[in-house]
Design a protein around this nucleic acid. Structure first.
Lengths: 164, 164
DNA sequence: TATTGTTATACTCTATAACTATA
DNA sequence: TATAGTTATAGAGTATAACAATA
């Protein structure tokens, strides 16, 4: 708590220039190892990269996937509702939907009850595509399971269930 | 696996315009609830926001904190070594260090053994400042503990230990 | 030839603010 | 007046590529 050297041995020869080659895996993280945020950030980078790579053939990224899944399960949602539910800025969702609409996966339908808002739906093509995306996403999830172990993955989901 | 409706009841009146007001917390996430990546992303957003807010008075963000902590525990590291260890692009680290050097927290010293590289050190001021940052970061970590529970936070750190 | 630090570019994402058309 | 969608801008963060100095 005081000096900050702690559990990290200083692997260098002297206090001035770097004297010898230091491998990445022998550099101590000091207090970072006790921060959940650090571990979570590193894990999130890994998991997103695996998701992107696993769904590369269909060119769908995590946020796009979450939007499509939400609309697929709740057709007719407004943009505001989707943005709030997923924690996306509504300004950002506009561009996400522009791209998904160009790809004919989603359509915006003017709401009759509130003419300011759009009811969001998957196209028929979008429903078919989403089914494939879900199969690939399930494959990605198996990678996660292999990486963490089955029990750990389930524990993780339980621990973080409150943030979804 | 086929249609995608699954565990999510469709809370709307008809297939066209949105018929009634839907609250955010009653929108089902469908298969997203089974994705570790989704939960992790939402949690990471929460935890980073708390970190940023808790260290707002000293204007230090998570990445800056990780760089300072690493240099503090391993003085003399090169920029390449820091970038590799933390998974930051070396091009990005240049700007991060520019800003930390302007604030007199870090200094770049030309290495004598390899004149291409810089040995990174905290300034005296940087060491004092880092001690304060660590106290605030510990306070942030207590917020995490309050949010997750003590046992869950520790389990989370164990599960993700391999990604640090 | 390869590596370190640097500069530059592009794209994603977050955070705002302001505008329009509606309510 | 407030809200839904849109447009625009600025700042992080990520991903590349290219360059100078040095190995």
């Amino acid at each position: 708590m005081t000096t900050g050297a702690g559990q990290t041995p200083h692997r260098r020869r002297a206090g001035n220039g770097a004297a010898r080659r230091i491998d990445a895996d022998e550099i101590g993280l000091d207090t970072l190892v006790g921060h959940a945020g650090y571990a979570v950030r590193r894990f999130q980078i890994w998991i997103f990269q695996d998701f992107i790579k696993t769904l590369e053939e269909v060119d769908i990224r995590p946020t796009q996937y979450s939007v499509l899944t939400l609309i697929g399960a709740n057709p007719g949602l407004s943009q505001m509702a989707v943005a709030k539910r997923l924690g996306i800025e509504r300004a950002r969702l506009v561009h996400l939907l522009d791209s998904l609409e160009e790809r004919k996966l989603v359509k915006r339908i003017k709401s009759k009850s509130d003419r300011r808002s759009h009811a969001l739906h998957l196209t028929t093509q979008g429903e078919t595509a989403l089914a494939k995306f879900k199969r690939l996403a399930a494959e990605h999830e198996r990678h996660v399971e292999q990486k963490l172990g089955k029990a750990n993955r389930e524990r993780l989901l339980q621990i973080l269930a409150g943030f979804t």
